[in-house]
Design a protein around this nucleic acid. Structure first.
Lengths: 228, 228
DNA sequence: AGCTGATGTGCACAACTGTAAACATTAAGT
DNA sequence: ACTTAATGTTTACAGTTGTGCACATCAGCT
């Protein structure tokens, strides 16, 4: 049996107590790695496997999470924050047409780089526990709200109600989410294929935006009151 | 194409002691039940659990499948056939406007009734093995192709190329797939909420259709060659 | 100094897993 | 009638799992 656990050797200069607080994060990271390279998602991931990867004893897990589900939620949260930040940054520095293309590209590149991130997002959306699912839904609506707000600032759809803008954003996010599994299977060595995919996704978004404009133009007498 | 082992009694289908020949189907059904009521998907489903549900010994499993993955593929195939049939039937008997609304309603109702079916479809799309994922992709493109063909017959978009029709259908399927997890969490007792959801999804589809029309109208000089 | 709470360890254990091996039954084909 | 292939069973085993328990280390407080 190999001695994997880096035992704190009494007075090791750098290990004197400071490596300790990292364990929680280590667990999350390990989970991310496992999810990334292993088929089976959070459900097919064992507590022991995670702790093994993190270099801790199995029981240490309970010092930081009560559940595997809780680990999953933490993992998800991290992904959401990062991804949201990236997209927001992109949108902030480009206008209209470029914005779409840039956003799509960022999504694709992030997805291919940090496979696990998007993987968890899409997979557990239909998979995980009820808590997990609604956490993801909330993340997605968060995405959509930010996008809607940016769309409003750009004044591309001045005639649209706030609610309908939100719906529009929702559709776009839907497209992105739906594209995610395909992103994850994109051949990393074939840049042409990636470009093709990006272009296609851009076009999808454009169609939706166009549709939204026509829709408003054609039915200006709408007066729905939406609540959600 | 696959010949499902049906080579048994031709005289008395049910009487020979046990219902022997049904075992394979029983396993599939059991898997479906488990997937439906258990969080965790195909990955979190054990061989023993399936055989237990099916009322057979664990080792009997190997008489019908080499792998759990193979079971999954069989399950998926069944779902695809059924769902595809339903949607095709719906589209065949209504035109244009009603077609959308009917299709959406069928999808939602089927999803709520046979949760496991849609669950497997969405979940394993991002989850399962590579084989599973491409099988699902193929199912989806199958859906899209059928839809595209129907759209062409309806002559709604006479000016569109075949390839662009296929893309349009792809977008619609994307929306449907993306909506699936939400369908599965719809409150069964609250019909109003279901109606609201259906209406919303219909509207999304309409926007896309409108967008597609405007798209063609605005950029008639397209000449892309797509290859998929 | 000594106490306390947080964080880590090892050991133990029962439950469950996948699957191998040998065997029983039966339908079908000769 | 005898063989054979398909389909099922029982028993067995080794590996993995989640988790309870007792204990070790250490930072920070009074």
């Amino acid at each position: 049996m190999a001695r994997i656990g880096r035992r704190r050797t009494e007075k090791d200069p750098e290990s004197s107590g400071k490596v300790r607080g990292d364990t929680r994060q280590n667990l999350i990271d390990s989970a991310m790695v496992i999810v990334t390279e292993d088929t089976g998602g959070l459900a097919g991931m064992s507590l022991r496997e995670v702790t093994r990867r993190a270099g801790v004893s199995p029981t240490a897990f309970y010092r930081h999470f009560t559940d595997m589900e809780e680990l999953g939620l933490a993992l998800l949260d991290e992904v959401g924050v990062v991804l949201r930040g990236m997209l927001r940054a992109v949108r902030k520095q480009a206008a209209t047409k470029d914005m779409i293309s840039n956003s799509v590209r960022v999504l694709v590149e992030y997805g291919m780089g940090q496979r696990g991130a998007l993987l968890v997002l899409t997979r557990e959306r239909a998979g995980g526990s009820l808590r997990m699912r609604s956490a993801i839904r909330s993340q997605m609506s968060h995405f959509a709200t930010e996008l809607a707000s940016d769309l409003r600032l750009m004044n591309l759809f001045p005639q649209m109600t706030q609610a309908d803008l939100q719906r529009l954003a929702g559709i776009i996010i839907s497209l992105a989410v739906s594209a995610t599994p395909d992103i994850l299977d994109l051949p990393e060595d074939n840049q042409a294929a990636v470009d093709e995919f990006v272009k296609d996704l851009e076009k999808q978004v454009l169609i939706v935006l166009l549709g939204a404009q026509s829709w408003r133009a054609k039915t200006p007498d709408e007066k729905k009151r939406r609540k959600k």
